[in-house]
């Protein structure tokens, strides 16, 4: 009995190793293939495709089932990257924020290098009620400020969430707008105003 059990244990162990090794091999093969098959164009560079950071690496390896401890560790280390506005002002101009939320351009191979990027918020979120063309990958943000208030904690949290979504939900689908330098500090302030300003259409 004991022999059978250890035989099973060994075979499981060997299978496990084989699978893990195969995965690593496929991973290495993939990077080698990508290097050969793709080339930088516009702002979409090979560097950003091939040199995955800790979040991209971990979320690629565990697309569905990352262990809890690893998720928590990722979130903690990503939270450290958040830069809050130096002047202490979190809210810009909501009208500018609305433009940024509508704009889906930026960082595509077809876009200008160093052009002005959009946030493309409506691709995934409901915001102003008037805009009926919104996606559903992210939660509705309609009445965000009205529902959440404008206390320091929620304002700082929201800033950090836009700056680096991975700080709160490891492997979130949302881009890290500040950390990945998609939006500038000023643009994030404008998007914040779209969410929190009492006059913003989001809060009507």
């Amino acid at each position: 009995m004991k022999i059978i059990l250890s035989a099973i244990a060994i075979s499981l162990f060997v299978t496990g190793c084989a699978t893990a090794a195969m995965q690593t091999d496929t991973g290495k093969m993939l990077v080698a293939r990508l290097e050969e098959d793709f080339s930088s164009k516009g702002p979409a560079t090979m560097e950003r495709m091939l040199n995955q950071d800790e979040v991209q690496k971990a979320c690629s390896a565990y697309p569905l089932d990352m262990p809890d401890e690893q998720m928590e560790a990722l979130q903690a280390s990503q939270l450290k990257t958040v830069k809050y506005p130096a002047d202490g002002n979190y809210l810009g101009v909501w009208k500018e924020g609305e433009k940024i939320a509508q704009n889906g351009r930026g960082m595509q191979s077809s876009d200008q290098v160093k052009g002005t990027n959009g946030g493309n918020c409506y691709a995934c979120h409901q915001l102003a009620k008037e805009e009926i063309s919104f996606g559903n990958i992210g939660p509705s943000l309609y009445r965000y400020g009205k529902l959440k208030g404008d206390g320091e904690a929620v304002v700082k949290y929201t800033w950090a969430k836009i700056y680096n979504s991975q700080a709160f939900t490891a492997c979130s689908n949302m881009p890290r707008f500040g950390h990945s330098e998609i939006l500038t500090e000023k643009q994030i302030k404008d998007v914040m105003a779209l969410l929190f300003d009492k006059n913003s259409p989001v809060n009507q």
Partner: peptide
Amino acid sequence: ELGKRFFFYRAGAHDFACA
């Protein structure tokens, strides 16, 4: 297997994968 791996490969400015 390579295609599957690529489907879940997150990278680039927006951290997107096909998935």
